[in-house]
Every structure is written in structure tokens, then in C-alpha cells.
């Protein structure tokens, strides 16, 4: 039927936009999860003459999450393996304390350098090993992924906005005649637009539901995490449901902008 075609031609671009926005939200959260996991794998090593406490270090930098002392027998054992002949008991007294320090988030290279300097100034600390090379690899990889996903969203968004504008034109043509006739009989603007408002509420609702169904399916089948090769990370379906309110709002907002554009053209018709 004709009206079905009308609906579909609006639902498709709306679906595309909402799908892209939801995709971005999901990817954004996945990257955040991924970042946490990367930062929990990454640690720096601090060598100190005297024992350190976490509280002490937190004063230096609140971004420090936890620390673990590296058992000195491990180091001694390694020396033993190399059969270096020293008095190991004596050496144990002599050896400094080794700490593995974990951070809350993955710092940038510059932040890492600042952290190193701050820690080095702490009384007793002799050395700070940041494993710069490893850090830089991880950090740059994440930056790359984040920016790629932003670029991706941007491209989808621009394409979809173009689709919507295309649709505005179609909409305008499709409804122009009816609104013009209504205007000839003195219908006020709100009445002429009531159809469009109704149409866009229905279509936004349908699009939102379709997006929800699509993602529910993609998530339950694990397609997204499989596609990204991060099967050990999970997407919370409840969060998707929560996003739908936002998507509905965005869809409605876009539709209302359409309507304003369409009705600004009607204004000309009514005044000839």
C-alpha cells in the first residue's frame, strides 16, 4: 500500500542513523572495557631502599591503583641459577625492595614520564622502570582503535544525514500537495503538520524497536564480539535497552527538524 511505502521510506534512514549511533555507543563502551583490561595488564616497577606503602604512593599520584612487592627470593634465585657465589642471606638484607605498581588507567606517554619523575623524587626510591616501549605499543594501538571508531561513526553519520536530507525532499514532495490543499481551506500550521508529527512518532518508534531487535540478536548470537575478535569481553543487553530511550529521542529530534524544514516551505505556499 502507498502509506506503507511512505513509512518505509522514512524508517530506513532513521534506522540507519539509530543503528550507527547505537553501534558507536557499543564500541565506545567496549573500548573503555578493553582499556581497563589493558591497563590492568600493564604495570611499572619501582625499586626502593625502604619499604613503601600504597597510601604513600597514592599521595604522589592518585592514579595509582595498587601495588605488589616482588619477592626478593625470586631475584636471588635468579642469581643462584647463574651460580654467582655470594652470601645469599646477607645479600637478602642488602637488596632494595621491588614493587610492581598498577595504574587505574593507561596513561599517555607524557603522563607516564611525569609519573616517573614524581616517583623518582620520593625519598628512598632509587629507580622507576616504566617499560616505555611496551607501553607505547599498547597506548598507540588503543589510540588507533579509538580514532578509527570515531572516524567510522563520522562517516556513517554524514552518510545518514545525507540520506535524511534526501528523505526530507521526498517527504516535502509527498506531503506538499496535501498541506497546500489544507492551507487553501485555512488549516492552521499545527494541523497541517499533525500528520507529519504522527508519522514521525510512529516511524521513530518502529525504527527504535527494529534497532533494538537487531542488536539483541547480534549480541545474543555473539556476532559483534566475534567480529571484533574480543570474545572475552561482553556487551550488557540491559545497557542496550537503556540506550533505546536515547535513540528514540535522537530519532524524534531528527524528525522534528525535518518537519520544521518542511513547514518553512509551506509558509511560502500559504502566502504566495
Amino acid at each position: 500500500m502507498k502509506s506503507l511505502k511512505n513509512h518505509i521510506s522514512l524508517i530506513i534512514p532513521l534506522f540507519a542513523i539509530l543503528f550507527a549511533v547505537e553501534f558507536y555507543l557499543i564500541i565506545d563502551r567496549l573500548i573503555a572495557d578493553y582499556e581497563v583490561r589493558l591497563s590492568s595488564d600493564y604495570s611499572i616497577v619501582v625499586v626502593s631502599k625502604k619499604p613503601l606503602t600504597l597510601e604513600e604512593l597514592k599521595v604522589v599520584d592518585p592514579g595509582i591503583q595498587s601495588m605488589k612487592e616482588i619477592d626478593s627470593t625470586l631475584i636471588i634465585n635468579r642469581l643462584k641459577e647463574n651460580s654467582i657465589s655470594v652470601n645469599y642471606e646477607e645479600l637478602k638484607e642488602y637488596l632494595p625492595h621491588f614493587y610492581r605498581v598498577y595504574l587505574e588507567t593507561l596513561p599517555s606517554s607524557q603522563q607516564l614520564e611525569e609519573l616517573r619523575e614524581k616517583l623518582s623524587k620520593v625519598d628512598g626510591i632509587e629507580r622507576v622502570e616504566t617499560f616505555r616501549k611496551t607501553h607505547r605499543k599498547i597506548y598507540h594501538f588503543l589510540l588507533f582503535v579509538k580514532n578509527i571508531s570515531k572516524l567510522f561513526l563520522f562517516i556513517i553519520f554524514v552518510t545518514s544525514v545525507m540520506l535524511v536530507f534526501k528523505q526530507i525532499e521526498v517527504w516535502n514532495l509527498e506531503h506538499q500537495e496535501r498541506m497546500y490543499i489544507m492551507a487553501l481551506f485555512g488549516a492552521p500550521l499545527w494541523m497541517r503538520n499533525a500528520i507529519l508529527v504522527k508519522l514521525s512518532i510512529i516511524d521513530t518508534t518502529v525504527s527504535t524497536i527494529l534497532v533494538y531487535i537487531t542488536y539483541s540478536y547480534l549480541i545474543s548470537s555473539g556476532s559483534i564480539v566475534k567480529l571484533l575478535g574480543i570474545e572475552d569481553l561482553s556487551i550488557d543487553p540491559a545497557q542496550i535497552a537503556g540506550d533505546m530511550l536515547w535513540l528514540f529521542g535522537i530519532g524524534l529530534f531528527i524528525s522534528m527538524v525535518n518537519i520544521i524544514i518542511v513547514s518553512s516551505r509551506q509558509y511560502r505556499i500559504a502566502t504566495v
Binding site: S3, R178, I181, A183, F185, G186, A270
Partner: peptide
């Protein structure tokens, strides 16, 4: 004002101008 005026008119157009979708 024009919308107001038109409410008091009854117009039959040469090409009818019926709303196709209605």
C-alpha cells in the same frame, strides 16, 4: 489572517484538489 479568511470560503477548484491519500 489569510487562514482565518479561508475558513469562511467554500472553494471548488477547476482541478478539484482532492487529497489523494484521504
Amino acid at each position: 489572517k489569510l487562514a482565518f479568511l479561508r475558513k469562511y470560503l467554500g472553494i471548488i477548484f477547476q482541478d478539484y484538489k482532492l487529497i489523494k491519500e484521504w
